[in-house]
Design a protein around this nucleic acid. Sequence first.
DNA 1: ACTGAAAGTGTACAGTG
DNA 2: CACTGTACACTTTCAGT
Lengths: 148, 148
Amino acid sequence: MIDVTDRKILNILSKDAKASLKLIGNECNMSATAVHLRVKKLEEQKIITGSKSVIDTYLLGYQTQSFIGIYFNKANIYRKVSQALYEIDEVVECNYTTGNFSLLVKVICRDNKHLTEVLSNKIQTIDGVARTETFICLEQTFTREIEF
Amino acid sequence: MIDVTDRKILNILSKDAKASLKLIGNECNMSATAVHLRVKKLEEQKIITGSKSVIDTYLLGYQTQSFIGIYFNKANIYRKVSQALYEIDEVVECNYTTGNFSLLVKVICRDNKHLTEVLSNKIQTIDGVARTETFICLEQTFTREIEF
DNA sequence: ACTGAAAGTGTACAGTG
DNA sequence: CACTGTACACTTTCAGT
């Protein structure tokens, strides 16, 4: 399905979506056009699904990132609660998980006051949400992409 | 510092790093060149720090994503433990948090067997790690970028 | 700070092995 | 079928307003 060259391309693009085809071609001993064809194929196969610019949210005033574990008071409502969470702009990631919580979500707020408001006025008012547990990120020590 | 046009540009690029300057220019009623100048400035200010292609890890055989809460048996060692975690390829995000755990990390593995191996042979052998708590993601209901 | 024309890339297409 | 070389479109740079 995908070979070692495709993996090399994915590893480069996952760290830099704007890496030039020329540069990738040099790394893979290929013409830029050949790389382009492979990238197109990876997009068709939905292995590459898009791209994002990485933006420093901290510099823009969003300085309180946190994870929130959510407990339910009913069974089988994770889809409905997820939908309600999707309506909350500050919630950027939502995972249905095993373990203590039912959902584990990532929230990006300006400050602790903003977080308090999101928690009490938005998340905890969702039907089915019994209790939440907040983990404020004091420091994100690293993020990185997986290597294929 | 940054105006409403910059925000518009950031919102577009955070969802699509390869959005054409032309298209952004249309959205902002500006020439492609003017957009380019603003993007360059945002990069210089380190508000835009880079870009990534979004890759479907599931399709490539990494089908078990999980969060792992890490407890320490000593104080003040989060930097050292973070460094050790950075050496583990499967750990893609590491946060020093308030709450029960000291660190909350995101791990991407091929399957549960792979996760077990990472947990017992890699994470739990790090000096200072007392105990871990694993939250396997049964479903990532959504991820999204914040709006500015 | 923005525009409009030149140089340098990315992309599409016809052609080769 | 995977790749190459060429032609056009786009991004990027630079002089000018």
